[in-house]
């Protein structure tokens, strides 16, 4: 992933409500390498993001629609989603 690559970020449930958006196109800073890095960066993007990402350990993520862990690398990602633990069924 180069510094100029734009990717899609998506938000669901209370993370969507707190950030005030369902999705956005973003160019990530080149120093972010893992999902955990991205979670930490999100919390720096303004008050609504600071609120939504205040407790990164309770937030789940998916890269290109597959569940990933905090240590997963971001390289090659086209779409990254953030959501609370799922509650279907």
């Amino acid at each position: 992933m180069t510094a100029t690559t734009e990717i899609t970020l998506r938000y669901f449930a209370w993370i969507r409500e707190k950030t005030g958006r369902a999705e956005e196109r973003v160019t990530l800073p080149p120093n972010l390498t893992t999902v955990a890095d991205l979670l930490a960066w999100q919390a720096t993007r303004g008050p609504e993001f600071a609120d939504a990402f205040a407790k990164p350990t309770i937030i789940r993520a998916a890269i290109d629609q597959r569940h990933v862990k905090p240590a997963t690398a971001l390289a090659g990602a086209r779409e990254i989603a953030f959501f609370p633990p799922v509650t279907g069924g």
Binding site: P84, V86, T87, G88, G89
Partner: peptide
């Protein structure tokens, strides 16, 4: 059902009598 409840990306929001609403905790 066990796998669906822990892996399928669905989220429930409850609305109570009185108007308040809350996302269901896993």
């Amino acid at each position: 059902m066990d796998y669906l409840k822990s892996r399928a990306p669905f989220w429930k929001k409850e609305t109570y009598s009185g108007g308040e609403a809350a996302w269901v905790d896993a």
